[in-house]
Design a protein around this nucleic acid. Sequence first.
DNA 1: ATAGGGTTAG
Length: 451
Amino acid sequence: MRGGLVEEAENLFDEMPDRNVVTWNTMINGYFKNGQKEKAFGLLGSIPNPDIYTYNTMISGLVQSGDLFGARKVFDKMDSRDVVTWNSIIAGYVHKGMIDEAMQLFHEMPLGMRGRDTVSWIVMVSGLAKEGRLEEGVKLFMMMKESELSPDKATFTSILTICSELPALCLGEQVCAQSIKTALNHTIEVCNAMITMYARCGNMTSALRCFSSMPTHNVISWNSIISGFSHHGLGPQALEMFEEMRFSDVKPNELTFIAVLSACSHAGLVEKGKYYFDYMKDECFLQPTAGHYTCIVDLFGRFGLIDEAMSFIDQMRADGLEVPVSVWGAILGACRVHRNVEVGAVAAENVLAIEPNRSGTYMILAEIYASVGRLNEVERVLTQMKKNGVKKQPGCSWIEMNDGGSVFLSGDKSHLEFDRIVEPLEVLHVDVELMSVGSDQNLVQSCWHSG
DNA sequence: ATAGGGTTAG
């Protein structure tokens, strides 16, 4: 049934001498899995004795084919629902990004023995996380622990991912400890989530320890550790891991090469970057995506090879590919660092043609003009930005500490401890300036800007 | 026997 063999399943089904409700349900599920919604409804109309599995299959099939309201109709008509019924319809709302509606159903569903279970909780926790409502996800996870349900490996995976996005090392380490208690800390999905959590919280030592202690690795494990090193500017270590991966029996995928190419970019390894790009196409038969082109253009551009980056764009066009906005963005960033006014103007024009409402593009272009003293042009760009009704949002950052949080807005000095906070920042700034003395000024600046 | 969930980039 799975591999597109619907017709064969159909024939078998038609010829079966004694079909029972399980056979019917399996057939309905198969139709949905093969995108044949109408045939599924056809069977539903002729099934002699539908049971709760039949309706649950309909709900999940409709949800997965994107028809939430069709699923809701089935849900409303049912006179007895079980926990799977509820979880399926809740997952449907989550799938559509209607998280508040999902939450309402989560509160309405029955509690107790056959009611709200681990799956119900995790659907809501991961649903909140998908919408970026990470703190609410954590709160719900805490509430789940207060109930008598114990987390399983999907729960750990999901909450560790939230920790990596916040990021929240303390909570992440607590969750790791809990997973050890339940002996789920060696399952591949939980380990992969741990690697990402440690990496994104800045602890590559623990990330590597976790990776090394895993019994087996899959492509996600490798991608997680490689991109972890890459993210921290540890290009050589990232490439070392990739070379190790080539000796394993796990095949790299598109994401592996995003990590590898951006590692080359951060480490300034132009030749290696070119080599891996060709290796990906010619040896692994992977079609480069917009993301890969962006990495390679970023690699050239960061190193000041703007002409080479531009000829790469020509090559893309010659291959009949659209030049994605991210590629022009990479060129623009390179022109800022290397003060290339001519190409910078072209890149900005191309970015603005696709995304006219991003204030950052205007600001970078103005900065490029300012850096070479063309103040009339600076004025012109800022006027154009205003004319197009684009407003620059003030920069904003926040930090949470033991006794509460603090929010900072660019230009705002109203924080009670402003002076005490700014002092070490100024020391840091002086340190960076000192670093640039006696070394290549441009290089340090490029690191600073691309931070 | 048949139905519901989780992991990798920027």
